[in-house]
Design a protein around this nucleic acid. Structure first.
Lengths: 230, 230, 230, 230
DNA sequence: AATGAATGAGTATTCATTCAT
DNA sequence: GATGAATGAATACTCATTCAT
């Protein structure tokens, strides 16, 4: 009911909301402009303050045109969350490429996450409001990111790079939570002398976080093999 | 603009919103009923779906009466967040009393946080929506909790119970984020076979989290004295 | 689904659409003004062209107030049809009082029907559009009137005043149809030299119709006893 | 204002709505498909719920193409009413052919009318809604049918087959009204055990109606020659 | 101290019609 | 001849807030 239509991730490319037909090149461009405008408007005003009129004005298209591409306000919101999710994960894996070690990769992933957060404050605000607008899509968002962490952790544990006594799922969610609140506090709330948001995390904070994560994940000499689990 | 009136925490007790006079005993009770109804309604429906009519009906009070106690919908929302914040911190310090060690206390604090979260899902939902409704009060909420963590961490570092290389502020926000997402994922999203939410954290998860925190905070043999800081 | 709420005919008096409570005297008056405005607006513009704003402006009350009394545009429409139905039947039975014979009463009933039609062209237009807006209420309208005719016919047949070979139900619907189209053609479509609608049926037409009905209903010498009936 | 363009009955065959030129054979077919689709859509949804998109989709034709054949939604509606009117009158005269007497013909005409009504419920719904969409075309519809009745009645009166005291015009409208309401009640509202509409009038009803008409029209021994008129 | 009738600004959504291709 | 993307005017309905009682 809540998810308008299915949650399929545009596997075969976007289609017209009215006719169900695949979009022409012109249509594709219009849809993209709507999504970009929506990102800005939702980020600035939040879901409820945002309005279709504001979005279409920002996109420079007619009001009615909106409904050729999205069924409803909720529908574009969900499409936007999924779109941002895809992009943040892309940003994270890009950062991780070429890392020399597991831990290095984990760190790089975080850096990618923070970079994206700083560049797209929308992601943050939009996702938090999703809790009430579209719980399913919110879960999808978190779960997809967490699954990436979790897979990395399991591999690192197998390789002996990460403490085997840690529960990978719990740990993955813990890392997700850390990233979220630290991004919120030190990127989104912070303002420099000119009142402008920082473009990257303060080095002290980043170092502190790295230390924290390194400590938490490092294999412990005493612990032999994950016997605490379950 | 956003904070209706000041954010003072009712230091001298609540006053009539209309006359500014302190409340009589009867008025006090009416105000309390409104806050309790608001907690339920906001938790179930979220800020925007909630309405003054729903709150007053739930409280068994006339619509007009509402404005004798609160200036606006936003005002009762802010009062509610502050109230919940006071109570969750109370729950945490209660849990920490009688802890034998610093680390023990930290763990107990987390347990108190999760207990409160499980018992008051309202806190969680209400706080997440506060981002858009009243950013100031949201910051106050997080900051107050984090300050507690941070003070504890500094003391523990001084006593040598916690790794001195960790930045206390960063670490405190990291812990807050962990608690928030783990509470969300494993308390609020989880459902047992009967579709009912769990009343406490799954032991595996709690153990995994404890291990994670213990690892992260434990003093490292190699590190001598916080020289990595800034 | 179509009938908003139930079709009960305000047996215990109208209630607030919002709270479900019975109306105060002031509320009662407001509701009456809305119904009167609705009769005019629906009659002039038809259901679809009519709008809540037009109705409330005509009634001289605020837009939002409308929804204190009716759940929707359809709801006031249905209430109006039922109200008009009650009144036309009242007008008909009033006309029939004191008729010296069965046939006389039947004729008087028709006269009452036409009088009401001439005074309330709304009835006619509103009812015809009801076919699409609220089929149930339309059926109720016709059925209630027809039942009156039918009961009269049965009694008259028993008394030997009406041809016993006639099927009372079919005959009742035939009479209803006659009345409707003759009212439409000779009252609602007709205009005098000044372009004004007539306030009563042209005597030629009324006489023609009376002759037609008298012929149709009069007991036939040849027919012995309603053996044609089902 | 209401009649889009003139009400001429396509006397010289349909023309392009855009160029005003007569249609090619291909164009003719497209126009016909549009009218057929319109009959279905208007009948199922009524005028206002119907939309050009629904009609063109049903016709398997591009949206823009519609305006090559009709100026507006109202224009196709009017064309449709006129088309149905032509066909119902055709159906009626077909039925009347070969009737042995005037009264027989009258009865056969009714049978034809009901047959058409049962087969084209569209006629009924579309016509009733026409009251608000296009009053002129509605009048044309009724008037054309009534004129047929009236002519027949005059001839029958001249031949002494019908009571000369009846006013032919009034009687014709009375018959029209009877047919309409009886068709509505016993064809369109009726459903058999399987919920399907009947394909013809119930014999009891038809017999009852025949008796009613026969009574009404039969020459009365007492009445000499229409002296009651005016 | 309490009430609830009245208000009207604000918003999502629909659809007939146009026009560039 | 045919198409369908784009348009924006129009409308039902909600709800925080006021105020007379």
């Amino acid at each position: 009911m809540s998810l308008s239509g299915e949650l399929v991730d545009d596997a075969q490319g976007p289609v017209s909301s009215a006719t169900g037909r695949p979009l022409t090149k012109r249509g594709e461009a219009t849809r993209r402009r709507l999504l970009e405008a929506a990102e800005l408007v939702f980020a600035e005003q939040g879901y409820h303050e945002a309005s279709i009129v504001k979005i279409t004005e920002r996109a420079g298209i007619g009001l009615g045109t909106f409904y050729l591409y999205f069924d409803s306000k909720q529908a574009i919101f969900e499409a936007l969350v999924l779109d941002l999710n895809r992009r943040v994960r892309h940003s994270m894996s890009e950062s991780m490429e070429g890392a020399s070690s597991r831990l290095e990769a984990e760190r790089a992933g975080f850096a990618g996450f923070f970079r994206f957060t700083a560049e797209h404050p929308a992601l943050y605000r939009v996702v938090r409001e999703a809790e009430f607008v579209s719980p399913e899509v919110l879960r999808l968002h978190y779960t997809r990111i967490v699954e990436g962490y979790e897979a990395g952790l399991r591999a690192a544990q197998a390789a002996g790079d990460v403490d085997r006594a840690l529960d990978p799922q719990t740990t993955a969610w813990a890392l997700m939570g850390m990233g979220e609140l630290i991004g919120m506090r030190f990127l989104l709330w912070e303002r420099d002398a000119d009142g402008r948001p920082p473009s990257q995390l303060d080095p002290v904070v980043f170092a502190g976080m790295t230390r924290f994560i390194d400590n938490a994940l490092a294999p412990r000499p005493g612990a032999t093999h994950g016997e605490e689990q379950a």
